[in-house]
């Protein structure tokens, strides 16, 4: 890792210690607030890779991954927001009013949610219902449902639109993960919406972002293992520190070793093989194992939100469901390996 990248990581870490760590529990309970959005914008994190004319910082990919990793190690919700703004919004919101809106969200002035499940899973029209006034449609599983505007599919289920919308029916349900953003139903107003492109544009944007999603997982792995390793050094049971017991020491240290291998791949590989899919698939599985072990190391305390470790367990599974495309990604990797169609049956 070169010095510039090290400096970038240090900067993000300092920022996170000052501005995220102390409110991490509040983010989980109440969501990411405007104050934090402003600070993220001022640092250039919100628009890390976006063009300068829209208020972006035009950073290189390695710096962008460093931001995703470090932010996610404190709050995966914040990491996912930065990812959605850079890897999706910045690629879709370019012309006219949409471009103006990109400026607003990258400055932290406004907010943008995503009809994500629908777009990626393509369940489109089947779950939409017309509102009573005939102008609104209900969208399920929208990320950041409290946002002002949303990227969703239009009536045909093929085109992407930028539309106004309002959260609906979230009063008695918390999402499993990324609670800083939330996942809920949203009522979308279709009139006056901007057309942005085709559904496949987002699918492609996600498929091109394997190493960036892997960087979010890497942050989750790092954040959860940091907590577990710190805890194992101070917590005693049966007269010894947890770290002195071989099962605890061996499992946490080998997880950390796997984390290191993943990190060197994410920052140093040219990712020719499979375009980063190998890192994505490896990091998805490692994030689940690491967060589970980190929670277990904390025992009963790990089961309470105050200790800030169970959120990683929830978030790893949530991100895996939303961003990682499970069998489809494994099939893509299989086709890379076999050089032909594979894994259909």
């Amino acid at each position: 890792m070169n010095d510039d990248l090290k400096l970038m990581k240090e900067t993000v870490r300092d920022f996170s210690t000052k501005n995220i760590e102390n409110i991490a529990l509040k983010i989980e309970r109440e969501g990411i607030d405007k104050d934090l959005l402003k600070k993220l914008a001022e640092q250039g994190f919100l628009g890390a890779t976006a063009p300068q004319e829209y208020g972006g910082a035009e950073l290189d990919n390695a710096s962008y991954r460093a931001i995703l990793e470090e932010l996610s190690s404190f709050s995966p919700s914040v990491g996912v927001l930065v990812f959605l703004y850079n890897s999706i919004a910045s690629k879709l919101l370019k012309k006219g009013k949409a471009g103006e809106y990109l400026k607003e969200i990258l400055s932290g002035e406004s907010t943008l949610g995503f009809g994500y499940g629908e777009i990626l899973e393509g369940y489109g029209n089947s779950t939409e219902t017309k509102g009573s006034d005939g102008r609104t449609i209900l969208k399920r599983d929208v990320i950041f449902p409290t946002a002002k505007k949303f990227i969703v599919l239009d009536d045909t289920g093929e085109n992407l639109i930028l539309a106004n919308g309002k959260i609906k029916g979230a009063e008695n349900k918390k999402s499993l993960g990324i609670r800083g953003l939330g996942i809920s139903d949203v009522l979308i107003e279709t009139s006056g919406a901007e057309t942005l492109g085709n559904r496949s544009d987002i699918v492609k944007a996600i498929e091109d972002s394997s190493l960036e999603i892997a960087a979010i997982y890497l942050g989750i792995i790092k954040g959860s293992l940091n907590k577990a390793i710190d805890y194992a050094k101070v917590r005693t049971t049966f007269d010894h520190f947890l770290k002195d017991y071989s099962p605890v020491a061996f499992s946490l240290s080998s997880l950390r070793a796997e984390e290191e291998l993943l990190r060197s791949y994410i920052y140093e590989s040219d990712a020719d093989f499979s375009g980063g899919l190998s890192a994505l698939i490896f990091s998805e599985s490692l994030s689940k194992r690491a967060t589970k072990q980190a929670l277990q190391t904390h025992g009963g305390y790990g089961y309470l939100e105050d200790f800030g470790v169970e959120k990683f367990y929830r978030d790893a599974m949530t991100i895996s469901t939303m961003l990682f495309r499970g069998r489809r990604d494994r099939k893509r990797l299989s086709e890379e390996v076999f050089g032909t169609e594979a894994g259909n049956l």
Partner: peptide
């Protein structure tokens, strides 16, 4: 179960 059901399980 979460892995097999995806968004259905999540929501």
């Amino acid at each position: 179960a979460m892995e097999l059901t995806g968004l259905y399980g999540l929501s």
